[in-house]
């Protein structure tokens, strides 16, 4: 009986896209995406942008992506994203050629400076796209990184 209800709930959850927060059932795939709309399901940068409602994001040179041109090890690629656009509230990083392109989202608090730095994994040579939300408008910037050794999968 338990198993039946588990399957049922799992199906319902995936069908409606609802987030399963019940302590009883925690299917891993649902958990993985629970913090967001299912951005991790998007297979390409375009899809991510569509889900964000940012398809018409304008390219801006006010966003700077600081990263190495060639990354020797794709498992650790330092990437810094700086937005000089006023009123920046959100920075989304997308690694185009990863199996799950949607990589990270930073929400900048009122006092925060719109500049973040983290280390990303990259499966292969890829574009890194930074999508910035400022005053309910979206802007984006792109940068290409050559990866000589991938970081996802063995």
């Amino acid at each position: 009986m338990k198993r039946r209800s588990f399957i049922k709930t799992a199906i319902v959850a995936s069908a409606t896209g609802a987030v399963v927060t019940s302590g009883l059932i925690k299917p891993k795939t649902v958990m993985a995406a629970s913090h967001e709309k299912d951005f991790t399901k998007a297979k390409s940068t375009e899809e991510v942008m569509e889900m964000m409602g940012a398809s018409d994001a304008a390219e801006s040179d006010m966003i700077k992506i600081k990263s190495p041109e060639i990354a020797e090890n794709g498992a650790v690629v330092p990437v810094g994203i700086t937005s000089e656009i006023e009123g920046t509230t959100e920075i989304v990083a997308v690694v185009s050629n990863n199996p799950i392109p949607y990589a990270a989202r930073y929400t900048v608090g009122a006092k925060g400076k719109a500049a973040v730095k983290s280390r990303f994994k990259m499966a292969k040579t890829t574009d890194v796209v930074a999508i910035v939300k400022a005053d309910d408008k979206y802007y984006m910037a792109k940068s290409n990184i050559k990866v000589t050794k991938g970081g996802c999968g063995g």
């Binding site: 991790t40 498992a75 990589a103 929400t107 900048v108 608090g109 400076k113 983290s118 280390r119």
Partner: peptide, 27 residues
Amino acid sequence: ANGEPVMTANWTGAISKNPFISFSYAG
């Protein structure tokens, strides 16, 4: 910072092992 959120990061598996984060804020 003093109980007020200055930065929230939502990450996925695309962030490297032993993650590093750096940013600044007016404080």
